[in-house]
Amino acid sequence: MTLPPLDLVAVLAGLLGVLAVASVIGYALQRRLSADGSNVVIENLNDRIRAWWVMVILMGLALMGGRIGVTVFFAFCSFAALREFITLTDTRQGDHWALALAFFVVLPVQYYLIWIDWYGLYAIFIPVYAFLLMPIVAALRGDTDHFLVRIAEVQWALMICVFCTSHVPALLSLDIPGFAGRNVLLIAFLVIVVQISDVLQYVWGKLLGRTRIAPKLSPSKTVEGFLGGALSATAIGAGLSWMTPFSPLEAALLAFVIVVMGFFGGLVMSAIKRDRGVKDWGHLIAGHGGFLDRLDSVLFSAPIFFHLTRFWWSVP
């Protein structure tokens, strides 16, 4: 096993430092404003910071674990996300085989293809093979009520939760000249930019937010929050170019694309939650909701970031 790149160790140490500062601030705020645990905003902030510790440590361990660590970690994220997504769909007993197939065959096969680095198949396995196979299996059960809606829901769930998520570990297989052995930093770059952008949009929104972007979908998203968060996350992305194969300008452009996709990903997933009448996808991450609540913006940006990087930087 090869050692993780030094830059990765530096990045993780930096993140833990940021979290330590956040924890100290959170503690001070709590002492001052919410000594009896009654200030909801402060309590939620501290819940979130605590959950961030767990997420950063788990993610760090996965990235240090190299190819196997990253693949298994994101396979589990896909599983948890798919479990949350399917819970909110209107599937019936007639979809039982199709769903079993989605969880126990399609998901593992997709990650196996990522693992063995078979780009030609993992890029089309779900959009082509699963797309055609799942409705066949559902049709064989003979339940025609809302058939199109049901198979569309399952396919959409697979595309979002498995196909899109799997493009994060797929970054490891890109062959970028002069960057060999350091691909794991592309994942760190993507995830850091997306998550920092989410946090900064939240912060800017709280500070300056006036004009709502989509009051029906997500009342907390504001133009000021989005612009402030997107621009500062783009700047941070440029500042992280040392850990990527990109120049500062390229890193800024890619970070901007990631941030915009992430923002709209959050919006789309909010629309689904709204439609289903829930506030969060699940309850596994205290203060954040479910896996999908934390992953929604990563899912939308991962495939785009993957293909842009593949098209312009990797050699076939």
């Binding site: 599983f79 798919l82 479990r83 949350e84 399917i86 819970t87 007993q93 039982h96 769903l99 079993a100 969880f103 126990f104 699940g282 309850h283």
Partner: peptide, 12 residues
Amino acid sequence: MPKGEFVPIPLI
């Protein structure tokens, strides 16, 4: 796990 099925579907 609806009646008659033997593979459980992961759901929350």
